[in-house]
């Protein structure tokens, strides 16, 4: 089969089959058909569809970027709100700490004042007691001196000694 065909063609085109003009109408006809079919496929279906896909993707990308930008803004806002709340809480905490400190200080001052007063009272009492003791001691010493002097005078010069004079002398000594 092939050989026969070849002979037929050979007769028409020795050398280059490209220059066999008898096949030109056939090739041109089928070429035109092919081009029209490809053109219709492309212009009716393929190219609009691809353009749609590309536009849709571009739209989606733009939309997503805008959404991302939005979310980013929201995140910044949230962060600011958080910072603000944190600062407020810190201020509140400081205020409460200050209040507590003042209260404690007041309590402490009151307690110290009470303690001071008590201490002062105790001290006064003690001083009084010491003064009394000292006064007693002075009286006792005078008495002891007097009785000792009388006894001494009586022992050393019995009968001579004038009790009143001795006592006066003791009295003078004690004062000096």
């Amino acid at each position: 089969m092939a050989t026969e065909t070849h002979e037929v063609v050979d007769a028409a085109a020795p050398g280059m089959p490209q220059l066999d003009f008898s096949t030109f109408p056939n090739q041109i006809f089928w070429l035109v058909v092919t081009l029209v079919v490809i053109y219709l496929i492309l212009s009716r279906v393929a190219l609009p569809r691809i353009a749609d896909i590309l536009a849709e993707r571009q739209g989606k990308i733009t939309h997503d970027l805008a959404a991302a930008e939005d979310l980013k803004l929201k995140a910044v806002e949230a962060e600011q709100a958080y910072e603000k709340a944190l600062a407020e809480a810190r201020a509140e905490a400081n205020r409460i700490v200050g209040l507590a400190k003042d209260e404690i200080k007041a309590d402490l001052d009151a307690a110290i004042a009470v303690a001071d007063a008590e201490i002062a009272a105790k001290m006064a009492e003690s001083e009084q007691a010491i003064a009394e003791i000292r006064a007693n001691a002075v009286t006792s010493i005078a008495e002891v001196a007097r009785s000792t002097a009388v006894e001494l005078a009586n022992t050393l010069a019995p009968g001579i000694a004038d009790e009143a004079a001795v006592l006066a002398a003791v009295e003078t000594r004690l004062k000096g």
């Binding site: 065909t5 089959p17 066999d20 008898s22 109408p25 056939n26």
Partner: peptide, 14 residues
């Protein structure tokens, strides 16, 4: 490069 009919042998019409 030879152009030949797919079915049969006849001459290549358009």
């Amino acid at each position: 490069f030879i152009v030949k009919p797919m079915f049969g042998d006849g001459p290549v019409a358009w």
